[in-house]
Every structure is written in C-alpha cells, then in structure tokens.
Amino acid sequence: MSGAIYAEGLVKTFGDVKALDGVDLDVPEATVLGLLGPNGAGKTTAVRCLTTLLTPDSGKAFVAGIDVLKHPNEVRRSIGLSGQFAAVDEYLTGRENLQMVGQLYEMRAKEAKERAGELLERFHLADAADRPSKTYSGGMRRRLDLAAALVVSPPVMFMDEPTTGLDPRNRQQLWEVIQELVAGGTTLLLTTQYLEEADHLAHDICVVDHGRVIARGTADQLKAQIGGERVEVVVHEPDHITTAVEVLTGFGKGEATVDRHTRKLTVPVTGGAKLLAEVIRELDTRGIEIDDIGLRRPTLDDVFISLTGHLAEVKDEENGANGANGDSDAKGAAAAKDKHKKEAAP
C-alpha cells in the first residue's frame, strides 16, 4: 500500500451486472488520476466505493492511508466529493449551503462563516452569495458544489465528471481550480468521459470499461498505444489517391486507410505540426491537389475503438440523472453495452 488512494480487487455487483469487476488503483500523493470511460463503465461506482457511499462486495480500499471499509468516518474527514450532480440545497443560499457543510465538517459556526466567504469569493459567487441557489445557472451551481467539497481543504478529492454539461468557459475555470488544488498538494481522483480532459489534468489515466481497468498509463503512453495523431487528407482528384497513399505511407506509422467515396485518406503519425508541413510540401511537389488536410488528435472514440472494439457512448442529458444512482449506474452499463454495439456497427 503506497498511494493516497489505493484500491485492490474492488468488486461490486448490482443484480446480475458487475459494475466493478476487480478494479485496482494506486494514486500517489499530490497527483491526479483520471478514470476514463463511457457511461456505465463503473466510474461512478468506483468513486462511491472509495468515498464510503457504497460497500464493495470484495476488495480493499485505502484513502489517505485509512481503511475505507474499517474506518469510514475517519475517511470522510479527509475527503471532499463533488459529483456530476450539483448536490446543493436549492432553497438555501450559496452562503448558507457552504456554512452548513462547514459545520458538518466540525467547524465552529464563526469559522464556517469565514470559510464560506472565502470560497464564495474564490469561485466568483460573491455577488450571488445571498440568493437561493435555485436561481443559479448550471455552471454556478457546479462551482458551489465544488466549493462545498473544498470547505475543509481535504487532502484527497474525488470529482465525478466535474465538467460534464459545462460550457467551455466554465470548464476552463474548473480546470484552473483543479490545477491549483493539485499544486497545493491535494490528491485527486477524477472521472471523465473526455480524453482531452484527462490528457490536460491527469498524471495517470485508467481506462475503464464494463467494470474493469482495460488500460493504464500516462496520457502519452495511452496515445502511443492507440496510435497517436492522425493525418487526414482529402484529395481533389480520385486519380491522385494511389500516389497520395504512397506519400502518406512514407510518413506514417501504420497503414493508411482510404475512403474512395469521400477521397479521404487517414494515416497514424507521430511528429505533429512539423510533420504535417512536410506532408503538405511533399504532396505539393508531386503535384497532388488537396481539398483539405489536417492533423487530428486521437479522440475518446479512437481510444475505445482501439482498446475495446466499440465506440464510447456520448453523454446525454438523461444519463446525467442516472449518474447519482449506483443502481442505475449498473443498469446503465447494460444499456450502454447495447448502444455500443449499435453505434459500432456502421
């Protein structure tokens, strides 16, 4: 046992669905682990087990060096949890919400009040501090929820899809807060469906699917595993396709794929923008006219196609409502499975 978050062989079954099927995790202090996976993969169930909300059927879990199963209340003193739901009381003001949480973390009333004020400032909620949180926008509520998780500056934080449903500006703000936290020594476990987010924030990434960790490593290692970036070219003349394939294969790290109908060629590469410039020059030298060319970063879909043979499910509104429920998380897994098949088919 070493990390600030450590789990070994976590299993959790709901009915006949294995939401967690032997998950091992090890997160060193002051680092971020990104738990990456589609809906129903078991991300939320893992977080719920580690935050004492669910008891796993078997396995071990330690958070901040404390046994989660034996001493849940001590674990609760050391963690902050921010869910995909903004779990704040909508009839209480932002300030009242934070004060309440502070007092429940065993702060004195005065201390809780001061801390609430600080956090409201920090999260740009000071102007709305004395309005019921019912009147807040989605982004504001999410910030309030995160502030509530940070009331005692816990050494270990869990964030379950913190940016799902947020607009780019709010997402950016949240990313900044997360980076600041980790710089301050907080250990963070973050679940996300966005490779980009895991790439940006996490030191290590675990890809989960059907309750299992199917790949782990740094963002770079994972990307290398799924073939890195791709160059996509659309040639103007169908006659030029053969020559263009020759050029691309010369630069590529693998087979070029060709879609004759759209005249689109794709090849995995390493070397980034510099390589792209070389490809363009070479195509130009050979007199191949192009309609479009670009460097495409691997997407979550690429990770999933490459690792599991199926597409990751795209988050929709309805699934947001399922997320807080461990039970439907598992049911979602079954539904997500079916959906994957359908989406992967064409």
Partner: peptide, 13 residues
C-alpha cells in the same frame, strides 16, 4: 433524488 443525501453521507456526520 437531488444527491444531497450523498453529500451528507460523505461528510463526517
């Protein structure tokens, strides 16, 4: 339903 019970259950109450 609103996830508040989750919040409370994750606190040292």
């Amino acid at each position: 339903h609103k996830g508040l019970i989750d919040r409370f259950r994750s606190l040292p109450m």
